[in-house]
Design a protein around this nucleic acid. Structure first.
Lengths: 129, 129
DNA sequence: ATTATATATGTTATATTATAACACTTTGTT
DNA sequence: AACAAAGTGTTATAATATAACATATATAAT
C-alpha cells in the first residue's frame, strides 16, 4: 500500500534542487543540474516548475526569471507573495508579514477585486550594505 | 536656438509608441512597429527602453515582459510602482494610491531598508468580470 | 478488472526575450 | 579644438520559454 504520492518523479527532482539551493535558481541551471538524472529537455523542467508553482511549493521571482522554494509551511496556493531581493548578491527572502499580507489582500481599486498579488522589494541585504 | 532635447531620436520614437498604445507592449512588437522608421535591431529598442525606464517615463511589467508608459506626471524616478493587471484581457493600470505608496515605501524587514519596490495585482477588470 | 480520463513523460523543433561586442557618430564640456 | 559621455547601427549569439506529437502511467468510474 504505497503512500499517495503527491509529486511525480520529475516534479520531486526539480523541487529537491530548488529547496536545497541557497538562492533563486534559473530554469536552465536546474536543467544542467539534472541531466545526470535523465532529464534532457527544457520542457521537462518548465512543466515541473509550472506544477510546483500551482501547488504553491515554489514561487517565481519575476524580476529575475528565477525560482525559489516556498518557506511558508503549507503554502498550498500562493496568491499573496512578497519578496525582499538584494540588488548586489543574489539573495531573495520570502516575506511573511501578516499585517502586510492582510493589507494587500484586502486592497482593491475602482471596483476591481484582486485575486492575487506579487510584491518585490529591492535593496541591499545586511551583508552587502 | 533649439530647446534642450531630453530624449534622443530612438528614445522618442519608442516612447511615442508606448504612450500611444492601449496596453503594454513587448520589445519585439515595438521593434516591428518601428522598422519603417529605420530601426532594425533589438539592441536599439532595448537601449531606448533601458533609458526610458531610468528616466521613469515607462515601466516594465515584469510578469509580462512588457512595457507601459508612466501615467504619473513627473514620475522622474520610479522606485515605487504598483499595477493592476487583468488576467483575461491585456489591461494594465498603474495604481497611484498615496496611502499604499507610503505604506510600502516605509516598509522594512529585518533591518533591511528598501530602495525600491514593484507590486503587481492580478484579477479581472470591469469588462472581463 | 476493464475502460475511460486525466496527468505525466520524452523528444525534436522553434519561438521569444535579451545581451555581447565592435565600429562609428553625435552631443556636451572644458 | 580636444576630450569625454552618450547614442547609434550592426552582426552575432545567449538565455528564456513554448508548440506539437507520440507514448506512458496513474486515478477514477462502471
Amino acid at each position: 500500500m504505497t503512500q499517495a504520492q503527491i509529486l511525480s518523479k520529475n516534479q520531486q527532482i526539480v523541487l529537491d534542487i530548488i529547496e536545497k539551493a541557497r538562492g533563486p535558481l534559473k530554469a536552465y541551471s536546474i536543467l544542467f543540474n539534472v541531466q545526470k538524472k535523465g532529464i534532457n529537455a527544457p520542457q521537462q523542467i518548465y512543466r515541473a516548475l509550472d506544477k510546483l508553482i500551482k501547488l504553491g511549493k515554489i514561487h517565481k521571482i519575476e524580476s529575475k526569471n528565477a525560482f525559489v522554494a516556498c518557506r511558508n509551511t503549507d503554502c498550498e496556493i500562493s496568491k499573496a507573495t512578497a519578496f525582499s531581493i538584494c540588488e548586489n548578491c543574489e539573495m531573495v527572502d520570502e516575506i511573511s508579514d501578516t499585517k502586510l499580507s492582510k493589507y494587500l489582500t484586502s486592497f482593491n481599486k475602482k471596483g476591481m477585486k484582486f485575486k492575487r498579488f506579487n510584491l518585490e522589494f529591492f535593496g541591499l541585504c545586511k551583508k552587502c550594505k
